[in-house]
C-alpha cells in the first residue's frame, strides 16, 4: 500500500486549537506541504502574528518568532536581512495585516522584501471575539458592527492584494479560496509559487487566503465555506494578480 496523503513532516503533531472547521488548519497544512516538498524545513523561519494564529509557532516543526500585533513584516525584514539564504514567511490575519500592520505590509512590499506573506482574510477579528475588521463586508454583522457594517460610517472592505499591486516591489500577489478541493489545490499552487519567487529572490510575495470564522460568523463550517464563495469572492476576486515572471521580470 502506498501512502497518498498524511500530515506533512513540517506540521507539528500537536493538535491545533482552532475551532472546528476553521480554515486556519488547512492553510497551516498547505504551508507545511510546500515546505516538505521543497525540502526547506531546516532553512525556513516563520513569524506568527497576534490573533488566532498566535500559536502557530507550536504547529510548525521549524524555527519561528512571534511578532507584536501588525509587526510581522518588520520582524521578517530583520530576519531576512540577517539570513538572506533562508526562507522566511509571515502568517497574518486581516486585523494584524490590514489594520494595525498596514504600514508594515505596504512598506515591506514597497521595499520588495524577499519573503512570503500568508494573509488570512476571514473578514473579522477572530481571537478577540468577532469584531469588525478592515476586510469585513458591507452589511456584515460583527461584535463592533452589530447593525451590519455601514459604508457611510466605517468605509468599504480593503482589497489588500490589489492595493499592493501598485507597488513594483511586489513580485507575486495572488488571492485564493479554500471552499472546495479545486480551490484548495489552486491555493497550494499559489503558495508554492510564492516560495519559488522568494527562492529566486525576485521580491515580495503574498498570497491572500479567503478564510472562514465559523464561530464568530455564527455559521456551521460548511455554510461558512459557502458564504466565502457566495459573498466574499464577488468582492474579493480570486486569481494571480501579479506574477513578475509573467511580466518579463522585475522592473529596472
Amino acid at each position: 500500500m502506498k501512502l497518498v496523503a498524511k500530515r506533512p513532516k513540517a506540521l507539528a503533531e500537536k493538535p491545533m486549537h482552532y475551532c472546528p472547521g476553521c480554515t486556519h488548519g488547512i492553510t497551516h497544512r498547505l504551508i507545511a506541504e510546500v515546505i516538505d516538498e521543497m525540502d526547506i524545513q531546516e532553512k525556513t523561519i516563520g513569524i506568527a502574528p497576534v490573533g488566532c494564529a498566535v500559536f502557530a509557532y507550536d504547529y510548525f516543526n521549524i524555527d519561528m518568532q512571534q511578532a507584536a500585533h501588525g509587526r510581522a513584516p518588520a520582524v521578517a525584514t530583520g530576519i531576512k536581512r540577517v539570513l538572506p539564504e533562508n526562507f522566511v514567511f509571515t502568517y497574518q490575519g486581516d486585523g494584524d495585516l490590514a489594520s494595525i500592520g498596514t504600514a508594515e505590509i505596504v512598506h515591506a512590499a514597497m521595499r520588495g522584501e524577499k519573503f512570503t506573506v500568508v494573509f488570512i482574510n476571514n473578514a473579522i477579528y477572530g481571537m478577540t471575539g468577532g469584531q469588525m475588521a478592515p476586510t469585513t463586508m458591507v452589511g456584515q454583522k460583527t461584535a463592533t458592527s452589530p447593525y451590519g457594517r455601514e459604508a457611510a460610517h466605517a468605509g468599504y472592505p480593503m482589497r489588500v492584494v490589489e492595493m499592493l499591486a501598485t507597488l513594483p516591489g511586489a513580485a507575486y500577489l495572488a488571492r485564493v479560496g479554500l471552499f472546495n478541493n479545486r480551490e484548495i489545490k489552486k491555493a497550494k499552487k499559489a503558495l508554492r509559487r510564492s516560495f519559488e519567487i522568494q527562492e529566486k529572490g525576485l521580491g515580495f510575495s503574498l498570497v491572500e487566503f479567503l478564510s472562514t470564522c465559523p464561530t464568530n460568523w455564527g455559521m456551521a463550517p460548511l455554510d461558512a465555506l459557502k458564504w466565502v464563495e457566495e459573498e466574499m469572492v464577488p468582492y474579493y476576486p480570486l486569481g494571480v494578480i501579479r506574477d513578475i515572471e509573467e511580466e518579463g521580470g522585475p522592473k529596472k
Binding site: 500500500m1 502506498k2 501512502l3 497518498v4 496523503a5 498524511k6 500530515r7 506533512p8 506540521l11 493538535p15 491545533m16 482552532y18 472546528p20 472547521g21 476553521c22 480554515t23 486556519h24 488548519g25 488547512i26 497544512r29 472546495n180 478541493n181 484548495i184 489545490k185
Partner: peptide
C-alpha cells in the same frame, strides 16, 4: 484529507 483542517486523515492506495 485536503478539506480536513486538522490533519486527521491518512490516505493509502495500492
Amino acid at each position: 484529507y485536503e478539506i480536513c483542517p486538522d490533519a486527521v486523515i491518512e490516505v493509502y492506495k495500492e
